[in-house]
Nucleic acid binder design. Structure first.
Lengths: 230, 230
DNA sequence: TAATTTTGCGTAAATTTAACGCAATAAAAT
DNA sequence: ATTTTATTGCGTTAAATTTACGCAAAATTA
């Protein structure tokens, strides 16, 4: 008896979910890739992801595969585009629902179909398997759009951070430079930042103020959106 | 011999493409629906759409189904979300790549699996088949977001139109009211409008200036985006 | 015939943005 | 040890933009 036991009247494509996971090390944007442990493209770097089970949503699939292949748990992934070109995959017709997430950098390890997993700076990413180069490019461009209309950073930065670190994050994503003093006042005016402790009188200029996010205000701005013109 | 001839090692979901087609009649936003001619949900209204062929992309499928079911050709559809809830469809596991498009109102007619097709005002839309209510809601919300960052109207308005018609369009989509005089100057400043003919000296106030879009400028703004703050 | 509506064209005040100055001092260079 | 450079906080000012209206001409409606 054949092992091909799932039969349909009409041909069905396979469906996968892939993940573009962004992180930030204080200076530049990183992306999490896995090295494929099986054919096709064995040995090549690729986005984490894999075939959808018949009883899970695309988002559930993305989270499951991400954890299986990299060890990263509870990322809050969001789908951004479905790639359905006919010859994306040499094995069979496969369409993929691509997701992205912003996470704090964490230790990752290969697992399941992934021989290994690690963070890459955006400018050191090698040629990827399948059409994953294209998927990554689109994710980066969506990230740029998003940063202008809702606050990010909460997901990417440590609990406590300086204004300079926040500015570095924005500059890394948007690939531009801002005037430090204007950035400073614009961010404070948004009201999503709170000083971690009152700055002492004697504090030196080289002990920068530390901030954390005001979660309530952050969520509200995320909800209703804003405009960062820069 | 069974008619179930397409067999796989693992279960595969079916994939469909659905279309949310928006139009504008000068006063309010319309959406194009079809009445289902076959089970399930026979007789219910639904979004145009259907199963993807194995050799076409989701976008091609959306366009094909749209033409088959409503007669509308060459709509420039764009995908906006993939719905993958497990029990969306009573027949089998179906995930759908939802698309939307802005078109000039045109005569439509039912065809193929659609008993009939017609335009509905957004506030007279009945309960739809499947999870199409949810899909429609998300499309409307995406349309609202989009209108603030890139010009629309070219797709929705007739060749030649008045400033008041353009304002009605924006007000209908965003569900707000603008000051006529500020809207007027803001739009002119964008540079995407050209007067169809020099306004004669003797023109009365009740013969409003007619505009058309400056295609080149329109495309450029579409490309690089802008911010309509309002 | 009088009141109302629509359209084009302004204008002034309030707000926001953009560009940059300056002092204190830590860190690095000489 | 001394000088130079870099970082941080806290401004200021001019330009640009947004917002809230005013007003008149003419068509429409009452």
């Amino acid at each position: 008896m054949s092992e091909y036991n799932f039969c349909y009247k009409y041909p069905h494509p396979a469906v996968t979910a892939d993940c573009v996971i962004f992180g930030f090390d204080g200076f530049s944007i990183k992306v999490l890739l896995i090295q494929r442990g099986i054919e096709p493209f064995k040995g090549k770097w690729a986005l984490p992801g894999g075939f959808m089970n018949i009883d899970e949503t695309a988002e559930e699939c993305a989270k499951r595969e991400l954890e299986e292949e990299t060890g990263l748990k509870n990322a809050s992934v969001e789908q951004f585009y479905t790639f359905s070109d006919v010859n994306r995959d040499p094995r069979e017709r496969v369409i993929t629902v691509a997701h992205y997430a912003l996470v704090k950098l964490a230790e990752v390890k290969g697992g399941d179909d992934a021989a290994s997993a690690r963070w890459f700076s955006m400018d050191e990413v090698p040629r990827l398997a399948f059409d994953h180069d294209r998927i990554l490019r689109m994710a980066a461009s969506r990230l740029k759009e998003r940063i202008c209309f809702e606050p990010i950073g909460f997901e990417l930065l440590p609990e406590v951070f300086t204004m300079t670190e926040l500015q570095n994050l924005y500059e890394a994503i948007l690939e531009v430079k801002f005037d430090r003093r204007n950035f400073y006042s614009k961010m404070l005016k948004l009201g999503i930042l709170v000083e971690t402790e009152p700055r002492p009188e004697w504090a030196s200029r080289r002990m920068p103020t530390k901030y954390r996010f005001n979660a309530a205000m952050y969520a509200e701005l995320k909800q209703k959106g804003f405009r960062l013109e820069f």
